[in-house]
Design a protein around this nucleic acid. Structure first.
Lengths: 116, 116
DNA sequence: CCGGAGCTTCGACCGCCGTCGTACCATGGA
DNA sequence: TCCATGGTACGACGGCGGTCGAAGCTCCGG
């Protein structure tokens, strides 16, 4: 994974056509990851990895972000040393129509704005 | 778990309001269980436990059915020695609007009628 | 050039979940 | 009454996934 010293940091984002439904479900079945996606959906902008409100260590958070990214749910990009996250909502809508919307709505029903 | 010798066999079905989204997602994240629900959705009628087309042992199948039932996704009832399964589609729709429909649609998109 | 903030990588640990085989129970029919 | 059928209960096992801490890397600011 070593990369030429001068290349910019980049991340791999799967084509959504290559993402299996099972991946998405497994990704969202974890409460931490569901919380990440929920927070991302609620806040208009893009949230940095450190900006999430979840009770896990940094390394664990990285892991969860990777899972979400591989499941095609989020897009990540670097801004300086900070890594920002964005929902791939429209692409998901194209791949699995109505799914993400229903999931987010369902999540909201359960925890009605736990936002501090 | 012994029950009076004359009582009919019955099963516990959770109130859907008591079912967490996470339970539903975990239930459906397993490929076998997703297959069960898909087959149930495709075939109009109610399928018996032995009638499913999945490559697992009988005891494993029982386990999966229990998980789906506890997640509020299916309703089970005995007819003689046979146990029938039915989707709780309408109740799920009331609890998590659009969710099950989107999931089933997504599952169909992926495996377009693998029905033999 | 140096430090610190932010994330990642790695290795380890542990608990949970899917799987099975075996033994068993309930029901209906011969 | 006995058997066959259909499911269940239980225990065991294996693997995977979530978790962490420590060490390291990258980029910006000073």
């Amino acid at each position: 994974m070593t990369r030429p010293r001068t290349a910019p940091r980049s991340v791999h984002h799967p084509d959504l056509d290559a993402v299996a439904l099972r991946q998405v479900l497994e990704a969202l079945a974890d409460p931490v990851r569901l919380a990440l996606v929920s927070q991302l959906a609620r806040s208009e902008g893009h949230i940095s990895c450190g900006g999430f409100d979840v009770p896990v260590a940094a390394s664990t958070l990285t892991h969860h972000c990777n899972v979400l990214r591989e499941a095609g749910l989020i897009r990540q990009y670097y801004v300086g040393t900070v890594k920002r996250n964005a929902l791939r909502a429209e692409e998901m809508e194209a791949r699995f129509p109505g799914l993400l919307a229903a999931l987010l709505a369902a999540a909201t029903v359960e925890s009605p704005a736990v936002a501090a």
